[in-house]
């Protein structure tokens, strides 16, 4: 149990997927204009990564390994993620209008989010068992959501700040992202 908690804490704070691995930077910059969008995107990412990780985990060990076609791993994961996102979008459209209103616009963006593929690949390359896979599939997107939310709050404050003209928009956002990466690197060693 302690190991699982350590692993989760490390994935959220220390090995943060955005600030230490520089993955998912596109939605990090694109959907962090306001905190409401950031939370919506974060929730959608958590849901998709968890579902896609479980499907790819079972598909890898029950199909690819048994058929001795492990080299099809990458293409399988890409297609599974894309298909899963289509399925989730269709399901939400049909059964929950309110959920679609909140998350629907973010779902197509997640197909191209490299964090989803990273988590699916990481679960296999690290040789995680099912419990570890589930922990990783929750903790990594939770770290993504945390950083996205913090970044969006800072950007909201920056909108009303007296920023030099040439720094407005993406330049100051990238400076802030760099400072956040430095701040998070200070957490190295807590576990």
């Amino acid at each position: 149990m302690g190991e699982i908690l350590t692993m989760a804490l490390a994935a959220v704070l220390i090995n943060n997927v955005v600030l230490s691995k520089f993955l998912g930077v596109c939605p990090f910059l694109g959907v962090s204009k306001n905190s409401k969008s950031a939370v919506g995107m974060g929730l959608a990412v958590i849901f998709v990564i968890f579902g896609a990780s479980l499907i790819t985990y079972f598909l890898y060990y029950q199909v690819l390994v048994k058929m001795h076609i492990e080299y099809m791993q990458l293409i399988t994961f890409i297609l599974v993620i894309a298909a899963f996102v289509q399925f989730v979008e269709m399901f939400i459209k049909k059964y929950s209008a309110s959920l679609y209103k909140n998350l629907g616009i973010y779902l197509p963006l997640i197909t191209t989010n490299c964090v989803v593929l990273y988590v699916a690949q990481d679960n296999i390359t690290q040789g995680y068992n099912l419990i570890e896979t589930m922990t990783n599939a929750i903790a990594v997107p939770l770290g993504f959501m945390l950083v996205l939310y913090l970044f969006s709050c800072i950007r909201e404050r920056l909108d009303s700040a007296d920023t030099p003209e040439s720094f407005k928009g993406n330049p100051i956002a990238l400076v802030v992202a760099g400072l956040m990466a430095l701040a998070f690197s200070g957490l190295t060693g807590i576990v």
Binding site: V31, Q86, F87, K93, L109
Partner: peptide, 24 residues
């Protein structure tokens, strides 16, 4: 799945949803 998703109508009031992405 893509075909069925494309064919599924969007819920009422969600036809013109746009993300706040500023673009990369």
């Amino acid at each position: 799945l893509y075909y069925f998703n494309h064919k599924t109508p969007k819920p009422e009031g969600c036809e013109n949803l746009r993300s706040s992405c500023e673009g990369c």
